[in-house]
């Protein structure tokens, strides 16, 4: 047993963190939000660090990594509340890698790995899809078959989600689309589990930020002549937040490692659903408490903690809410 990241994984996580600390401060993020909602410069940098190719097969220009390799990256993304649609692209690329023909893979995956091609997946023809306005290709499940189309051919209405992610309401019409794979249900389920496990990791990162910044606030904010962290009522509250965070992190580890190692789809699905349930509960708990313990400041748009709150609110339900995964867990 070994829960540590490998040296390679740690190096990558460190360089991603360093980049985000230098170039993706809360103020930088604000500017991106005020602009297009994502940054092509940042995207280029992510590609340069190898992130767009990380989980792709070496046969198509990737590094052959898995969910565990991406876990620490997604945690770092969660902490910095990164807006760029890396995970949607990697999820769609995974589908292509598992379901498409060799020719299609050759046409798509090397471009993804090099950061030149962004793709997103929609589970139904009319759907709200994160990253769609920045994507070149859209994958869509119609009945049981998987189609792909140029994003430019798909009518879409762009908007920002509650947590400021660039998204679009799409209307995918099959006449303009190519078949990617027939009967792609199992591949989609696998790719969704991959994405769900990494959404868990991202939420864990956002929770880490919320916990850390709240702890810092409890140590510095003074009322009644003392730091509010000296009040036992609040000490217990923040302890519970950290417990939620740790439990969520454990479950994200479980989900990512099962996605990578499990031969048995039911075993993988159970682990991922269990993780998502725990992460959803923890995200709700940590986000709500982080705002509450900040008092009025927690409500302010000016503080990152309220943005982390919004992100966690969405992440808790993205890729299936706790009820959805409870149903799935219990049925397996």
């Amino acid at each position: 047993m070994n829960f540590d990241y490998s040296e390679e994984q740690q190096l990558l996580a460190d360089s991603v963190r360093r980049f985000l600390q230098n170039k993706y401060q809360f103020e930088d993020r604000k500017k991106i939000i005020a602009g297009e909602g994502w940054s092509s410069d940042v995207w280029a940098k992510l590609a340069e660090m190898g992130l767009t190719g990380l989980p792709l097969s070496p046969d198509y220009g990737g590094f052959g990594g898995g969910a565990v390799d991406l876990m620490s990256v997604m945690e770092a993304f969660g902490e910095a509340l990164v807006l760029e649609p890396l995970l949607p692209t990697l999820m769609a690329a995974r589908l292509v890698g598992r379901a498409a023909s060799d020719a299609q893979k050759r046409a798509l995956l090397p471009a993804v790995a090099e950061g030149r091609l962004r793709m997103v997946f929609a589970a139904s023809p009319k759907a709200n899809v994160v990253g769609a306005p920045a994507a070149h290709k859209l994958l869509c499940l119609l009945e049981k078959d998987l189609f792909i189309a140029d994003a430019a051919e798909v009518p879409m209405k762009p908007y920002r989600t509650l947590d400021n992610m660039l998204a679009a309401r799409i209307d995918f019409s099959p006449s303009k689309a190519d078949l990617l794979a027939k009967d792609a249900g199992a591949a989609v389920e696998e790719a969704l589990d991959f994405a769900t496990a990494l959404v868990c990791a991202e939420a864990v990162g956002a929770m880490k930020f919320s916990c850390d910044t709240t702890l810092e606030y409890l140590k510095t904010r003074k009322q009644f002549g003392v730091p509010i962290g000296t009040f036992q009522a609040l000490q217990h509250r923040i302890v519970d937040m950290f417990i939620s965070y740790e439990q969520a992190k454990s479950m994200a580890c479980l989900a990512c490692s099962k996605v990578d190692s499990s031969e048995n789809p039911a075993e993988r699905a159970r682990a991922v659903s269990a993780a998502k349930i725990k992460v959803a509960d923890a995200a709700r708990h940590v986000s709500q408490e982080s705002v509450q313990l900040h008092g009025g400041m927690g409500m302010s748009e000016e503080l990152k903690v309220s943005h982390s709150f919004r992100r966690l609110t969405v992440l808790a339900r993205q890729c299936g809410d706790a009820d959805h995964h409870l149903e799935r867990f219990a049925s397996l």
Binding site: N128, Y159, T161, R169, V291
Partner: peptide
């Protein structure tokens, strides 16, 4: 909020989500 898609951007869904955000103030 549980009645809507967390990624929705239509006006009704957004209003429900924002109501959730703003109602956090009541315990503060």
């Amino acid at each position: 909020m549980e009645c809507i898609d967390p990624l929705a951007g239509d006006e009704t869904s957004m209003a429900l989500q924002k109501k959730y955000l703003t109602t956090r103030k009541t315990t503060i």
